[in-house]
Design a protein around this nucleic acid. Structure first.
Length: 280
DNA sequence: AGGGGAACCCGTACGC
DNA sequence: TGCGTACGGGTTCCCC
C-alpha cells in the first residue's frame, strides 16, 4: 500500500537510475490502467522522448518526458494504489518481480521500466502541463514541505467536524497521508483517531504535524513499509514495518504504556489501531 | 460546499 | 477438495 514514503522511494530510485534515458518503445499489455487517453496517444507522446525528471506528488510518481513534437513536457502520473509499483528491469530482475505487467517503457539502452499491478486498481495517466496543473491544484500541500506552517495545518483541521483521522487522510487538505501513517502519527501525538478534528487545540495540531513529519521521514529513511505488496524500483522491500507502533499490532501491547492496542473499523470503515489509554 | 455512497479490480479468506 | 462468494482499499465521480 504505497503512501508518501513508498512512492517517494520509488521516485528517488527511478530518478537515480533512468534520468536522461530515451524511450524507444512502449507496450501496454493491460490498457485498462490508462487514464485520460488511448494507447495510441500514450505511445505517440512518449516514444522518442527523454526522461527529464522523476519525482513524487502526494502518492503519485511523476515521470516527466520531453516532447518529441512541440514544447509540451508530458507527465506520466502513476498512482500505484494498493498493489501497483514501478520497477526497472536491467535483465536481472527476478521472474517473480516480472509478473502482472500493465505498461512497459523500453529504454534505448536495453533496460525496461515496468508498471506492475496485480489487482489493477492503480492508474497511469498522461497529462500535459495544463492538465497536471489542475490535477495538482486539487490536492493539498505536501506535509514535508516547510512551506506548510503549523498555522495552515491547524487551520484546515480545526475547520472540520469529521474525525481527525479522516481529515488527515483527505487529499484535498493534505497530500500523501494514507491509513498506515495516519494511524502511526496519531499514536505518536497521543490523539484518539475518532476525535472530532475541530476539538484539537492549535498546540495539539502542531504536535500532530511534528509527529507526522517524524514518522514520514523515518519511513523514507527505511525505504518505506512493505506490509504485503509494496516493492521499491529494484524489486526490494522497505523495512519500516519493523518500526510501526500500531498498524498491524491490534491486540499487542502499546509501546508506551503496555496496555493492549485496540483495532476497530468504526472510525472510517478502515482498520484503525490505537491505544485507548494513551490516545485521547 | 461538505459529505456520503458507488464503482473500479482481483487475491485472499471464508463458508458450504 | 473444490467451488462460490464476500471483502478490502484510495481515488474519482455522482448525488444530495
Amino acid at each position: 500500500m504505497p503512501e508518501l514514503p513508498e512512492t517517494e522511494t520509488i521516485a528517488r530510485d527511478l530518478e537515480a537510475m533512468v534520468l536522461g534515458a530515451l524511450i524507444a518503445r512502449v507496450e501496454v499489455p493491460r490498457p485498462d490502467v490508462l487514464r485520460g487517453g488511448a494507447v495510441a496517444a500514450f505511445r505517440e507522446a512518449l516514444v522518442g522522448g527523454a526522461l527529464r525528471r522523476v519525482w513524487r506528488r502526494a502518492k503519485c510518481i511523476v515521470l516527466e518526458v520531453d516532447a518529441v513534437r512541440g514544447d509540451t513536457r508530458w507527465r506520466v502520473v502513476v498512482q500505484p494504489r494498493f498493489t501497483g509499483g514501478l520497477v526497472v528491469d536491467d535483465g536481472t530482475l527476478p521472474a517473480a518481480e516480472r509478473t502482472a505487467i500493465c505498461v512497459t517503457a523500453h529504454l534505448a539502452d536495453g533496460r525496461c521500466v515496468h508498471y506492475r499491478d496485480v489487482r489493477r486498481l492503480g492508474t497511469v495517466a498522461l497529462m500535459d502541463d495544463a492538465r497536471f496543473a489542475s490535477y495538482s491544484a486539487g490536492i493539498g500541500p505536501e506535509p514535508l514541505d516547510s512551506a506548510l506552517t503549523a498555522e495552515a495545518f491547524s487551520g484546515f483541521i480545526r475547520y472540520s467536524r469529521r474525525p481527525i483521522k479522516v481529515v488527515l487522510m483527505d487529499q484535498r487538505h493534505l497530500a500523501g497521508v494514507g491509513n498506515i501513517y495516519a494511524n502511526e502519527s496519531l499514536w505518536r501525538a497521543s490523539i484518539d483517531p475518532s476525535r472530532e478534528a475541530a476539538s484539537l487545540t492549535a498546540g495539539t495540531c502542531a504536535d500532530l504535524l511534528a509527529a507526522l513529519r517524524e514518522v514520514l521521514t523515518a519511513s523514507i529513511a527505511a525505504r518505506g513499509t512493505s506490509f504485503r505488496d509494496y516493492r521499491d524500483a529494484r524489486g526490494a522491500r522497505g523495512t519500516f514495518v519493523e518500526q510501526l507502533a500500531v498498524y498491524g499490532r491490534a491486540g499487542l501491547p502499546c509501546l508506551r504504556c503496555g496496555r493492549r492496542l485496540v483495532g476497530t473499523h468504526a472510525v472510517d470503515g478502515r482498520q484503525t489501531v490505537f491505544c485507548p489509554t494513551c490516545q485521547h
